[in-house]
Amino acid sequence: MRLAETTREAVQGWLMVLPACLLLAAFTHWPTVQTIVAGLHTHPVPGHPSEFDPLSNFQDMVDDPVFRQALWNNLVYAAVLIPSTMTLALLMALAVNRRLPGRGFLRLAYFTPTVLPMIAVANIWLYFYTPGYGPIGRALAPFGLGSWNWLGSASTALPAVTVIAVWKQAGFYMIFYLAALQSMPADLAEAAALEGAGRWYYFRRVVWPLLMPTTLFIFVNASIDAFRLIDQIVVLTHGGPDNATLLLLYYIYQVGFQYFDSNYAAALTMVLLGTLGAVTAVQFGVLARRVHYR
């Protein structure tokens, strides 16, 4: 009787998870395995069928200046995007967490870009960046920068597309900080005030440590975004000018769907997967040791 019941529960359990898990496996785990297999094989050309050569693609990668630039661009993109969105998100959350005039409007203003499709956001910013004509050009005209082509110059294209991503993402992460701030017990602040703690001291010694799990969560998500958020590059710069805005995922897209070298694209995807894996490993490493988790 007992055994029959356990078996029944096991069968039920498997049947219930199976449909979702099969679909998940078909589009996450299976392609991951396929990517690794493809990445370790050479690209077939007429007369030379694809063969197993685990180093060939990676050798090409080392000698590929475009790849090196894409990797470097992506690291710069991440290094700017992650801290600036996180800082802005925290400032926004701290601002609207307190009573201040127009709090509802401010929260709306900060959050709205998050709801828009990145393509819509890119269109709006394309106008802002238009040389001579757009608001940025007109505002900077007195400084002689009116006709500067922000998206079309190799030196400013990457910062320009980064600004777009910051504008879109900061409000999204603000929500998580806001949720954490609002779940903090009010008597903590009262106790700190009774003890005569200054606001900065209270933030540094009480609020910031309590926000640590949220910060880590946002950090991991912002890092994943920094390697995934390329919609604005697809429509605005196509990775140019001179590969100045070429990011890893965009290069994979180019190699896979424009140069049709699926083996090299697979090897590039392996690099991206490795990077994402490293980010997640950091999360678990830090989680296990430092951050106290609720």
Partner: peptide, 16 residues
């Protein structure tokens, strides 16, 4: 899958 979104694997998913 929380870490590896389907769009990262677009080349292989296209094949599927």
């Amino acid at each position: 899958q929380l870490m590896i979104a389907p769009d990262v694997l677009m080349v292989e998913n296209y094949v599927t």
